[in-house]
């Protein structure tokens, strides 16, 4: 018996000649926050909409608590979805919008009023029931949409890029509110976004998708520090990529440089070295007694508040280096890159 709350097994969905979702399997545990992350057109929204019941998979099955729901239409699955454009009913008040699902479930009027009031309080919009959606700001509309989905106590909460219409600051605030609410209610949540920072910040687990497949499933830390391939490493965060060959155990040789790396790869294999910008240390003078030091020149520098980002030419390559909490002045001219061995991530497949 599968313990997963939502289980997607071997799902394929085609639209004409294009394969939107290509044999995907995914288990979501009860109470967890799982994010489908990927570039547009990677199939993440199609996958979410199949869980909601808007698309029927060509192959494969979907289970909710072990019960097959593949053929159950959207309105009879106990899932609730929050849409990118909120999809609030413009002809209903906020209260009527939130109470819509309850009315369909034949909840008595008094009970419905009570529960709408509760959930409105939960999303921080107490007493706004009589307004119309167009009287509210974007962030408030988003919360109403969330309240409308939560009030029917769905088995699974589905969110389709819910923050993409909000401005940058608000997006960060609402996303932490969504996360808090999810933790508080212990609601199993499936979340779709193309924003890797958002995915890292909000999720228990992330499924990175591309071309209809899940490339990697893991916690945000795993995804960031141990990407399984170049696509994941590149899509999530920034990285310097260096290609070379393992010359001896713990040694990678590439054009003009040789680096000491963690053990693991067999000599003779082609590998890609992944280096996050903040993993590299920058020195004005050559550091003493450490391995993997390269001499380089700063070509551009940019001050980003909490860190300074440098573009450095060294060993015939361009490097991106992030230095946390920069002081009063940025470095210029000649610098020395120190690449700590334990911060290097190796990809054996290229």
């Amino acid at each position: 018996m599968n313990r997963a709350h939502v289980s997607v097994q071997g799902i394929t969905k085609r639209f004409g000649p294009t394969v939107a979702v290509d044999g995907v399997s995914l288990d979501v545990e009860e109470g967890s926050f799982t994010t489908l992350l990927g570039p547009s057109g990677c199939g993440k929204t199609t996958l979410l909409r199949m869980v909601a019941g808007f698309h029927h998979p060509d192959q494969g099955d979907i289970f909710l608590r072990g019960i097959r729901v593949t053929d159950i239409p959207a309105h009879r699955r106990n899932t609730a979805m929050v849409f990118q454009e909120y999809a609030l009913f413009p002809h209903m008040t906020v209260g009527e919008n939130v109470g819509y699902g309850l009315r369909l479930r034949r909840v008595s009027a008094d009970e419905a009023t009570r529960r709408v009031g509760q959930v409105m309080e939960l999303v921080g919009l107490a007493g706004q029931q009589r307004k119309f959606p167009h009287h509210l700001s974007g962030g408030q509309q988003q919360r109403v949409a969330l309240a409308r989905a939560l009030v029917v106590e769905p088995e699974v909460l589905l969110l389709d890029e819910p923050l993409s219409n909000l401005d940058a600051k608000l997006r960060i605030r609402v996303r932490s509110e969504i996360r808090q609410l999810q933790q508080q209610l212990g609601k199993t949540t499936l979340y779709v976004t193309h924003d890797q920072e958002e995915a890292l910040a909000i999720s228990d687990r992330i499924a990175v998708m591309n071309r209809g497949r899940i490339l990697q499933l893991g916690t945000p830390l795993q995804i960031y520090h141990h990407p399984v391939n170049r696509f994941v490493a590149d899509f999530v965060g920034l990285a310097n990529f260096l290609e070379g060959e393992v010359s001896a155990p713990g040694q990678v040789r590439m054009e003009g440089v040789s680096l000491t790396v963690p053990d693991g790869a067999l000599p003779g294999r082609r590998v890609t070295v992944v280096l996050r910008p903040e993993a590299i240390r920058l020195h004005a003078r050559p550091p003493e007694g450490v391995a993997n030091v390269l001499r380089g020149y700063v070509t551009a520098a940019s001050f980003l508040g909490t860190l300074a980002r440098y573009w450095v030419d060294a060993a015939g390559r361009h490097w991106i280096v992030d230095v946390p909490s920069p002081g009063e002045a940025l470095m210029t001219g000649e610098v020395f890159l120190e690449i700590p061995r334990d911060r290097i991530h190796l990809l054996t497949e290229t």
Binding site: A52, G53, F54, P73, A74, H75, R76, R77, T79, A80, M81, F83, Q84, E85, A87, L88, F89, Y100, G101, L104, R105, A145, R148, A149, V152, L158
Partner: peptide, 12 residues
């Protein structure tokens, strides 16, 4: 999307 929103809330 409005129709879908209604459907996911349980409307036939």
């Amino acid at each position: 999307a409005l129709e879908e929103a209604a459907e996911t809330l349980g409307a036939s």
